[in-house]
Design a protein around this nucleic acid. Structure first.
Lengths: 144, 144
DNA sequence: CTACAAGTTCAAGTCAACTTTAGGTCAATG
DNA sequence: CATTGACCTAAAGTTGACTTGAACTTGTAG
């Protein structure tokens, strides 16, 4: 079923500008034009979910395009996928530890978080694991 | 014990430029100057760890600054910690789904991952009930 | 047929968190 | 005493992912 950009926007929740941007970047494709206007196949919706998932996982759009290119992709490098999966394993471990620490701190009866030993341990770990470098910028749409 | 910016940089692992930037933003303070040069108290190191932790948890610098009282003692709302923990839960779920998807895709004989039913199911499962809006900008330092 | 809402392109703007650059200051070392 | 190197400030640049604006075209409702 063909969708115009407004319909795709509604279905995917992404603004039309983002869809144009994604197309320009080669992440999605329109199946043609009706006049000057783009027409998308509705399987693009699924593809957009995949992209959203990848973004959520912390991959850049370039990474995602490289992983899931629709066609023209020779054969997706399985070693690369495995490496990404291992990377994710590590990230999951880190985030899990962090989540547990935060959750503890939220429930901890210590009057100040700094007085909670669990929290202090967490802080120390965060301070020393500078290998992680820059982390996760804030959520939320800037313009909205 | 007083530290100059080089010593603080070494102790914290952050480049001097970042420390100046943090000071300018009001996240840390120097205790004074020796000539033209900043002098920091070494408790700033712990504060930087706290900042690093906040960053890893996904708080913005502005958020983090708001988590300290004017006197500099941390004042972190437990509700926000809990909310952040919940956010991390969701992210961990997504990462896990994606990791499983990638790992499967690496072994899957289907010509394209998008054609693999297992992969599609994983994507679909992760994609449900989450707005596809903008998510996390990429990991990894741009200049490094 | 005309108006206009909704599409189009291309360029430029935005945001966060820094880094880099340019130009200057100063303490110490040879 | 001249030079070096660490530090300073202010301003501009970077990166990724989009958004916004200006100027233009078009499908379609009236």
């Amino acid at each position: 079923m063909p969708l115009d950009i407004a319909a795709l926007s509604k279905k995917s929740g992404l603004p039309a500008s983002a869809l144009r941007f994604y197309e320009e970047k080669g992440l999605i494709e329109s199946i043609g034009r009706k006049g000057m206007r783009r027409v998308f196949d509705d399987d693009v919706v699924e593809r957009l979910s995949l992209i959203a998932l990848g973004r959520q996982a912390g991959f850049s759009l370039d990474d995602i395009r490289a992983m899931f290119r629709p066609d023209g992709s020779p054969d997706i490098d399985r070693g690369r996928l495995k490496a990404k999966a291992d990377e994710l394993d590590q990230k999951i471990r880190d985030l899990t530890a962090l989540r547990d620490g935060l959750r503890h701190a939220a429930d901890c009866p210590a009057p100040s978080h700094l007085e909670c030993p669990v929290f202090r341990r967490l802080v120390r770990r965060a301070g020393t694991s500078r290998a992680l470098g820059r982390t996760i910028p804030s959520f939320g749409r800037p313009g909205f």
